[in-house]
């Protein structure tokens, strides 16, 4: 089956920043994204877990699949939000079936 090259951008960011990030992505022309809850983790800011939390706390993962030529615009928009905050931005190569959707 025919596949097409794409970029998978995964941004793990603090939950209170989620809406700001997704708004920035939409403004930058991203047509779709997926938000996943993150159960817990550990990093430079120490350990944390989602268990038992009642406020808007913890982290979420925002995942975008886009055409390679749109990567820079997305990263600029994302970095504007993520720059001062705890989080991780990673980019991987991937293949998609329907290129026109990204």
């Amino acid at each position: 089956m025919q596949t097409h090259t794409a970029k998978r951008v995964e941004i793990v960011i603090e939950a209170p920043l989620e809406r700001r990030l997704t708004d920035a992505l939409v403004k930058a022309g991203v047509t779709g994204y997926t938000v996943l809850p993150v159960l817990g983790g550990s990093g430079r800011s120490g350990q944390w877990t989602r268990e038992g939390q009642v406020g808007r706390s913890g982290m979420v993962a925002v995942i975008c699949l886009i055409r390679p030529d749109r990567l820079d615009g997305l990263l600029e928009a994302a970095f504007g939000v993520v720059e001062r905050h705890i989080g991780v931005v990673s980019i991987t190569d991937c293949e998609v079936l329907r290129a026109e959707r990204f």
Partner: peptide
């Protein structure tokens, strides 16, 4: 420990 921490994460990271 609920409302203010969330606000601080946004405004004073």
């Amino acid at each position: 420990y609920i409302a203010v921490p969330a606000a601080m994460r946004v405004a004073l990271p």
